[in-house]
Amino acid sequence: MEFVDTSILCNLLEVPGKSQDREKAIAELKRKRELREADLLLPVTAIIETGNHIAQLSDGYYRRLCAERLSGVLVTVIEGTAPWALNEVEWNAAHLRALVDGWSTGASLIEHACNRLGCGDLNILVERDRYLARTSGVTAAIWTLDELLASYA
């Protein structure tokens, strides 16, 4: 099982300024699908962060183009035809507590922020940890191009 990080989603959607490793991401997705090496889960956090990156684009043409691409990907998730499934996470007090505590990382949200690990990246780790807590006999990594996040993945 692998959680798809924002860095991967932005590359696959070719978000300007966030897709310098696009060919690498496409090749890796193709390889993962052909080898059926891992089931892929799309964290809610990656959707929100990617949408924010798109909304912040200064060029309206690319903002619309990328928003259409993201919308298209979300429709494939809804229809079950995407190369990944949505990680359905319950956003509640327990989730917020896990985020504040940093769950399995050994450091709090405050400590991570001071060390430049953003709340979105930390939340992807929490989504993964909560997924593992509700499943048994499963391992889960994070597919990312972000070096800091990868160090925890």
Rank of each mutant, 00 (worst) to 15 (best):
I47D: 04
I47C: 00
I47K: 06
I47R: 04
I48K: 02
I48F: 05
I48W: 01
I48C: 08
I48E: 06
E49K: 01
E49T: 05
E49G: 10
E49S: 00
E49P: 03
E49D: 02
E49F: 06
E49L: 04
T50Y: 06
T50D: 09
G51R: 12
G51Q: 03
G51H: 01
G51E: 04
G51W: 06
G51D: 07
N52Q: 11
N52L: 09
N52A: 08
N52M: 09
N52Y: 15
N52E: 14
H53R: 06
H53D: 07
I54L: 09
I54H: 07
I54V: 14
I54N: 06
I54S: 00
I54M: 04
A55M: 09
A55I: 11
Q56I: 08
Q56E: 05
Q56K: 15
L57F: 10
L57W: 08
L57M: 13
S58R: 12
S58V: 15
S58G: 11
S58F: 09
D59K: 13
D59W: 14
G60I: 15
G60L: 12
G60T: 10
G60W: 10
Y61I: 12
Y61G: 07
Y62D: 10
Y62N: 12
R63Y: 05
R63V: 10
R63G: 11
R63D: 03
R63P: 10
R64V: 05
R64Y: 03
R64C: 02
R64D: 10
R64E: 10
R64M: 11
R64Q: 14
L65T: 13
L65Q: 14
C66I: 00
C66F: 04
C66D: 04
C66E: 03
A67M: 12
A67Q: 05
A67I: 08
A67S: 11
A67D: 09
E68L: 04
E68T: 13
E68S: 05
E68N: 11
R69G: 14
R69C: 03
R69E: 02
R69K: 10
R69I: 14
R69Y: 15
R69D: 07
L70V: 10
L70N: 06
L70F: 09
L70E: 09
L70G: 01
S71E: 12
S71V: 14
S71Q: 07
S71A: 07
S71F: 04
S71R: 12
G72L: 04
G72H: 11
G72M: 02
G72R: 01
V73R: 01
V73K: 00
V73Y: 05
L74C: 00
L74I: 15
L74H: 03
L74F: 13
L74N: 06
V75A: 08
V75Q: 11
V75L: 04
V75M: 09
V75E: 08
T76F: 15
T76Q: 11
T76A: 09
V77E: 00
V77N: 00
V77P: 00
V77F: 07
V77Y: 10
I78Q: 05
I78R: 02
I78E: 14
I78W: 13
I78K: 13
I78D: 04
E79R: 06
E79D: 12
E79H: 06
G80I: 07
G80R: 04
G80E: 02
T81D: 03
T81N: 13
T81K: 10
A82W: 05
A82S: 12
A82Q: 07
P83Q: 11
P83D: 11
P83K: 15
P83N: 15
P83M: 15
P83Y: 12
P83A: 08
